[in-house]
Design a protein around this nucleic acid. Structure first.
Length: 886
DNA sequence: CTGCACCGA
DNA sequence: ACGATTCGGTGCAGA
């Protein structure tokens, strides 16, 4: 009897997520699949394999989107090996059952290979279950005997077991069936099941036709392909061609390692030739990270002249530890004593830097030529770029930053390493991760002892970048983001580098005083709280202990549970604080310890020797296009409470200078007005009305002048909610009102602003059609949640679809404004410097005498950054510290 | 390393 | 029955 082996998409998924520690994840999945595929077929000589992708429509892939390169390789393999692939929108059990019946009628037997045990029902009496054991996959035969052995259940009761365990849990399902034998048995003894609620659930599950029906409905259009017994020799051929491809990619590359000047000159000349012919040169400057997340001195530079040819030019010393002159080309920077190292490396590094500079200038003026780099923002010191060069605007056209490009194409990823980029754009995952490569040693230490390895790694990186850059650029062009890349993201890399290089001045003594003043009050509160609660030992900072104390032992009302115990969040404690003084004390304690640890103590760790804090601005973190700030985060310095706000007094300009702080007024609501074209909202902005009052007037049907403070506050919350993608529950929580009331507000809002309703609905439908949302400047955000099966996740997707175009457009506009402001400051030879961005706010350290001009530059730069249907309004203040300027 | 809590836009 | 307004970063507790 001919045996058909059916690999289903669950088995593919299991493979895709098989994380084998020693293998790169993507290829690990593929090689694991091939291993298992052959192992199964090897044991079943003469069987005829097929693959079915069920439940995912006709044109979807076998593997999840993250594994696109493997998907392609997998399909190539299946095609070359002559394995048919069937696709259907029907469920896997339905598809398997249809095919099984067809096979049966033809006198054949169908054996599914799957990671989903629920296939084992209806007519399918046995299957091979894919399981992971110690990182590798294996198959286990499941049949009646195995079911009895594992669960103590009969084959007949197994479908009921699956259905019940989904919703009751395995243990309870098992217990019920062991006791009553079959679903019929349970039904007869339904009354014996304790608890009316549980009884109802069991009863409804037992009636669910999807699980209980004996006969599955055949899937139309799904036909068993002609039998083609698997030929092991084909497999061997395919495998060897696969591995040859890999060998060709990794071994044929020509690599050069040199510290010799003449040889380096020759390589630079050849790189220039590549650029002159409109080609791509990959460049990786190598340095060790220094303090504050910035790059240390240059150790070497790798050039990739093509995907097969590269070189590593190492920075060498000019004299050794004894001060004796060294011959050119000796790779001995690390033999130079520490105190002399900087001079020694500067001498030879400057040779490399001046050559990099001419490469850059050449690439910038040659059509089609690019320098493929990774993370330009951290590389400016190595490219010989002088600020004055950008007197007429920031010109970085010769560069292609693969990091930025990959981010624009998919901003959802956690990281974008060169290895990731190779895997994604070249289907080449032969480059190790930088972290894995470095393990515990720094580049400097490694270079000293393992020159060849470091050189090989960095060159490999450069080759990957050179080869990926044109592909990423193609994708940007296809997705119409090349303008966003060229005019915003690329020049912004320089602005951000400049801002973090300059930093912001902090007075350490003042910061210390701020912290010390808190310490006294914290100690007082600490003692008071322990006294008031009568428990001298508990840890106030432990939500677990605090929750148990307040709600279990003191029996305070209004407790809510989280996953791991009582919630002690501020909004719950605030409701209790009028009645329980100790709760008010706890809230104050929380506020003060937060200020002390995160801000007073936290910030002081980051004050550099120049007495300034140099944050790092990240350009490839957020899903919406915003910038983020870390080490420290200067985008969340307290503002709301008077006491927290005080900390802004420790941020000061240079002596004699001032700060000018400028922020967009309600930029997101204005973007919403403009993008939606809603007439009422646009008119309100054009008439210069108080927008929240106007909203209140309409939503609560009250004359404009009679709107109460409460109404205005509620309307403001509604406006925020609209921008975030509102739900009635969310609004009711935010306003402490009933859900019905919140729903009525939203209803009335949409009646009054129908253009906004239409616009938001369209954002959701468009995102569902396209799979992503788009900002005014063409930035995309994929929203995979919209296609997920969970209702909650889809709801989340819908809110994201409403929010991302608005928040993202705000980010676009602010980025454009930053470039405009920065460029004008330099064009006009101002001394004043842009130093911080806080999403809708810019901070400039203003030189004496430039106050008026800086205000003009900020206002005009920010207001003119976009042409909306409503004006962009900007508030601007000057002051002697950040507290006063904001 | 995760969850909670809380700072900002 | 669930879980319910977006985007981030940091510090702490507790596993």
């Amino acid at each position: 009897m001919l045996e058909r082996i059916l690999f289903d998409e669950h088995s593919m998924m299991a493979l895709a997520f098989a994380e084998t520690p020693d293998l790169p994840s993507g290829d690990a999945a593929l090689s694991e699949f091939l291993r298992l595929f052959f192992a199964v077929l090897d044991k079943r000589q003469g069987a005829s394999p097929l693959v079915v992708s069920a439940g995912r429509g006709e044109n979807t892939s076998l593997l999840p989107a993250e594994l696109l390169p493997q998907e392609k390789a997998l399909e190539d393999f299946l095609q070359e090996a002559g394995v048919p692939v069937l696709r259907t929108a029907a469920s896997a059990p339905a598809a398997a059952e249809t095919l099984r019946k067809e096979a049966e009628e033809a006198g054949e037997e169908l054996l599914p290979v799957t990671a989903d045990l629920s296939l084992l029902q209806k007519g399918t009496k046995k299957l091979l279950l894919v399981e992971k054991e110690e990182g590798t996959l294996k198959t286990v035969l499941w049949d009646a005997a195995k079911i009895r052995e594992t669960f103590g259940l009969s084959e007949d009761s197994f479908p009921a077991f699956l259905a019940l365990s989904k919703r009751l849990g395995q243990k309870r399902a098992q217990a019920l069936l062991q006791k009553y034998g079959t679903p019929e048995g349970i039904r007869e003894h339904l009354t014996e099941i304790p608890g009316a609620h549980k009884r109802d659930r069991v009863s409804s599950i037992l009636q669910d036709p999807a699980f209980m029906k004996e006969e599955a409905v055949p899937v139309p259009g799904l036909a068993l392909p002609a039998a083609a017994p698997f030929d092991p020799s084909t497999a061997k051929k395919v495998l060897s061609s696969l591995s040859k491809k890999e060998e060709a990619a990794s071994s044929s590359a020509s690599e050069t390692l040199t510290g010799d000047r003449e040889e380096a000159e020759a390589l630079f000349r050849r790189a220039e030739e590549v650029l002159q012919s409109g080609g791509t040169v990959g460049v990786v400057p190598l340095s060790d990270p220094q303090r504050f997340g910035k790059r240390g001195p240059l150790l070497g530079v790798s050039l990739a002249l093509s995907e097969r040819e590269s070189a590593f030019l190492v920075v060498s010393a000019t004299e050794n530890a004894d001060g004796a002159a060294l011959p050119e080309g000796q790779l001995s920077l690390f033999d130079v004593p520490e105190e002399k190292k900087e001079n020694a490396s500067l001498l030879t590094a400057s040779f490399l830097v001046s050559h990099l500079k001419s490469l850059r200038l050449l690439a910038g003026k040659t059509k089609g030529a690019r320098l493929a780099v990774f993370g330009l923002q951290q590389q400016f010191p190595f490219w010989g770029i002088e600020e004055e060069e950008f007197h007429d605007g920031i010109h970085l056209q010769g560069f292609f930053d693969c990091l930025i490009g990959a981010y624009l194409i998919n901003p959802l990823k956690n990281d974008y390493t060169p290895r990731d980029i190779g895997t994604e754009y070249l289907k080449d995952d032969t480059l190790p991760e930088e972290k894995a490569f470095l393990a515990k040693k720094s580049y400097g230490e490694k270079l000293k002892t393992e020159e060849k390895e470091v050189s090989g790694f960095v060159q490999h990186t450069a080759r990957i970048l050179a080869e990926s850059a044109p592909k990423i650029e193609d994708s940007l062009r296809k997705e119409e983001m090349e303008n966003l890349y060229e005019t915003i993201e690329l020049p912004l890399t320089y602005v951000l580098w400049d801002m973090q290089r300059i930093g912001i001045r902090v007075l350490p003594e003042k910061l210390k005083k701020f912290g010390d003043d808190l310490t006294g009050r914290i100690a007082e509160l600490d003692a008071k709280i322990h006294g008031e609660t009568g428990d001298p030992d508990f840890n106030i900072a432990s939500p677990k202990q605090l929750g148990e104390l307040l709600f279990d032992r003191m029996h305070l009302p209004g407790g809510k549970k989280t996953k791991s115990g009582w919630s002690t969040s501020a909004d719950i404690l605030e409701k209790l604080s009028p009645d329980y003084p100790v709760v008010a004390d706890i809230l104050e304690y929380r506020a003060l310890t937060k200020l002390k640890s995160t801000y007073a103590d936290g910030l002081s760790e980051f004050i550099a020797p120049d007495s300034r804090i140099h944050t790092t601005f990240h350009q490839t973190i957020t899903a919406t296009g915003r910038i983020s700030s870390t080490d420290p985060n200067l985008q969340n310095i307290p503002m709301r409470t008077p006491q927290g706000r005080e900390i802004r007094k420790v941020f000061l300009p240079r002596d004699g200078w001032s700060f000018t702080d400028s922020d967009y007024s309600q930029i997101e609501l204005r973007i919403l007005a403009s993008m939606s074209g809603d007439e009422a909202l646009i008119e309100a902005y054009q008439g210069g009305k108080d927008i929240h009052r106007m909203t209140a007037s309409r939503v609560f049907n009250t004359p404009f002048d009679e709107v109460t403070d409460l109404q205005r506050r509620n309307a403001k919350a509604v406006n925020f909610g609209i921008v975030y993608g509102i739900s009635s529950f969310g609004l009711s929580q935010g306003l402490s009102i009933s859900r019905e009331e919140a729903a009525a507000y939203i209803d009335q809002y949409f009646k009054m602003f129908p253009g906004i309703k239409t616009f938001l609905d369209r954002q959701v439908t468009d995102a569902k059609t396209n799979g992503y949302s788009v900002t005014m400047m063409g930035r995309r955000r994929p929203i995979p949640e919209l296609k997920e099966s969970s209702y909650m996740r889809r709801q989340f997707g819908e809110r994201v679809a409403m929010n991302a175009p608005i928040q993202g457009t705000g980010a676009d506009i602010m980025k454009k404004a930053m470039i405009r402001v920065w460029e004008r400051l330099h064009r006009e030879n101002r001394k004043s410097q842009l130093i911080l961005q806080i999403h809708d706010e810019l901070l400039i350290e203003t030189a004496p005498g430039e106050e008026k001009d800086v205000e003009t530059i900020l206002r005009e730069g920010m207001m003119g950054a976009a042409d909306l249907k409503v004006a962009l309004e900007v508030d601007c203040h000057n002051g002697t510290d950040w507290y006063e300027a904001k």
